[in-house]
Measured scan of single mutants.
Amino acid sequence: ATVHVKGVTYHFDNPEQAEKFAKRMAKELNGEVHVDGNTWHVD
């Protein structure tokens, strides 16, 4: 799974980790999470 945060890409072997990371980053950055298959975007 892949997480894109403000133009930076993070790779996770575990999709659950990717989801938790994306949601945590969105919270910290006051952003929104969008999911597209195995790819998470934090804007």
Rank of each mutant, 00 (worst) to 15 (best):
D36N: 13
K27T: 10
G31E: 04
N14E: 09
V8T: 10
T9E: 09
D36F: 13
N14M: 08
T39E: 12
K23Q: 13
T2P: 01
E16L: 11
V8I: 12
H4R: 13
D43K: 15
V3G: 00
A22W: 01
F21L: 02
A22R: 01
T9Y: 09
N30T: 05
L29H: 06
E19L: 05
T2W: 13
A22F: 02
M25N: 03
V3F: 01
A26D: 01
V8L: 10
E19T: 04
D43W: 15
W40V: 03
Y10V: 04
D43C: 09
T2K: 12
E16N: 08
G37S: 05
H34E: 05
D36M: 13
W40T: 02
N38P: 05
K23W: 13
Q17R: 07
V33K: 02
E19I: 05
Q17K: 10
D13W: 07
H41Y: 15
A1L: 07
L29M: 10
A22T: 02
K27N: 10
E28R: 10
H11S: 08
N30I: 05
G7M: 04
E16R: 09
K27S: 11
L29A: 04
V8W: 09
D36Q: 13
P15M: 14
G7L: 04
V35H: 13
G7V: 02
M25R: 05
G31T: 08
T2A: 08
D43F: 15
N30G: 14
V5A: 05
K6Q: 14
F12K: 00
F12N: 00
A18N: 00
W40I: 06
H34W: 15
N38S: 08
K6V: 07
V3C: 03
A18E: 00
D36S: 13
H11Q: 09
F12Q: 00
N14H: 11
E32F: 14
E16Q: 11
V42W: 02
T2F: 13
V3P: 00
T9S: 09
K20Q: 14
A18H: 00
A22H: 00
H34A: 06
D13M: 09
Q17E: 15
W40P: 02
A26V: 04
H4V: 15
G31L: 15
D36V: 14
V33E: 03
V3A: 03
K20A: 15
E19M: 07
V5C: 05
H34I: 11
T9Q: 09
L29R: 03
D36H: 13
K6D: 14
V35Q: 15
Y10N: 01
W40Q: 02
H34L: 08
V35W: 14
K20N: 12
F12I: 01
E28P: 02
H41R: 13
T39G: 10
V35C: 05
V33W: 13
V5T: 03
A26S: 05
V33F: 09
R24L: 14
H4G: 03
L29D: 03
A1V: 11
A22P: 00
A26P: 00
D13L: 09
V42F: 03
V35M: 11
K27A: 13
T9K: 10
P15K: 11
K27Q: 13
P15F: 12
Q17H: 11
M25F: 04
V5K: 01
K6L: 15
T2M: 11
A26R: 03
F21M: 03
K6T: 07
G31F: 09
N14R: 08
A26Q: 05
V3L: 02
K6C: 07
H34T: 13
A1C: 07
Y10K: 03
V5G: 02
N38H: 10
F12S: 00
E28T: 06
N38G: 06
D43M: 15
E19V: 05
E19Q: 06
P15E: 09
K23P: 00
T9A: 11
V42K: 01
G7W: 05
M25H: 04
N38A: 07
E16F: 09
K20M: 12
T2Q: 10
Y10I: 05
H41F: 15
V5Y: 07
H4W: 14
D43I: 15
H41D: 04
V5F: 08
W40R: 01
D36Y: 13
V5W: 05
H34V: 10
V35A: 08
V42P: 02
K20F: 09
A1M: 08
W40S: 02
T2C: 07
G7T: 04
F21P: 00
R24W: 14
A1D: 04
E28W: 08
K23T: 10
K6E: 08
H41P: 01
R24N: 11
T39W: 04
